[in-house]
């Protein structure tokens, strides 16, 4: 095993992954994520973006290939070590805001900090700061069911950013939002990440979203592609053949 280059905080080589039902997800993906950059993983739905993020963040072990995080091999770690690394170093944003419905907004935001052992008071202060920064500071005492989808997603982003992770994985964070909300949420996310030097791996199928990133890795059918030569869009295929002209 060769240790990865030093400037890459996260580094994957020849990742292969097959789902439980046998459908292929990743076939030989290699990429490196540099310190402090925002990397977009592009591609249409079903091209393996989510699986790649799950492999990189240690949620699922890679079946073949290597994943290195700061010169530590992730692919050889046990589940407990991966869990600890995820808690201490990584942040995760779901496509759908998944908050704990019984906790109010600031408790949700402070939860990862408290799970790391920060005291309640300091966790609350940090959560409050991040909520203010993401324009949901006045909602801190509400419960998730009283918020709109965009507000919930912003709370999720605050929750992911509050513990100051080394790498933040965002799996299509703006998928369920309208375009105005989408732009706002993305801008706050990228600004916060840049100002705090947080590396972001962003899965998106949207070219506009990918434009906010430093670099884009396009995925197609589980492979990294540099240039995609899709066939030109024809006239609606098969219409002439199927028409019932009598």
């Amino acid at each position: 095993m060769v240790a990865p280059p030093d400037n890459d905080v996260l580094w994957a080589r020849a990742l292969h992954f097959t789902h439980n039902d046998g459908s292929p997800a990743l076939s030989g993906v290699s990429l490196g994520v540099r310190q402090g950059e925002i990397l977009a993983v592009g591609g249409p739905s079903g091209s393996g973006k989510t699986t790649l993020l799950r492999c990189l963040s240690g949620l699922v072990p890679a079946q073949r290939g290597e994943v290195w995080f700061n010169s530590t091999p992730v692919h050889t770690m046990g589940p407990l070590a991966r869990e600890r690394m995820r808690r201490d170093r990584f942040g995760w944003i779901d496509p759908v805001p998944a908050l704990v419905p019984e906790l109010n907004v600031w408790e949700n935001t402070a939860l990862p900090l408290m799970l790391r052992g920060t005291s309640r008071r300091r966790a609350r202060t940090a959560a409050q700061e991040w909520l203010e920064r993401l324009d949901v500071g006045e909602l801190t005492r509400r419960r998730p069911h009283q918020l709109r989808q965009a507000e919930r997603q912003r709370v999720c982003i605050a929750r992911a950013l509050a513990p100051a992770p080394t790498v933040l994985f965002a799996d299509e964070p703006t998928a369920p939002l309208h375009r105005a909300d989408r732009a706002h949420v993305l801008r706050t996310l990228t600004t916060a990440a840049r100002s705090h030097g947080i590396t972001v791996v962003l899965a998106t199928h949207d070219a506009e979203t990918a434009a906010l990133a430093d670099r884009t890795v396009p995925l197609l059918d589980g492979r990294c592609v540099r240039t995609v030569h899709l066939p030109p869009v024809q006239d609606t295929e098969g219409r002439a053949a199927c028409s019932l002209s009598v």
């Binding site: 949620l59 869990e83 808690r87 998944a98 704990v100 939860l111 990862p112 799970l115 929750r159």
Partner: peptide
């Protein structure tokens, strides 16, 4: 179960 899965994704230890 959905909440539990989300908690695991943000790194809540299973022991907790």
């Amino acid at each position: 179960s959905a909440t539990t899965a989300a908690l695991v994704r943000i790194g809540a230890p299973g022991t907790t």
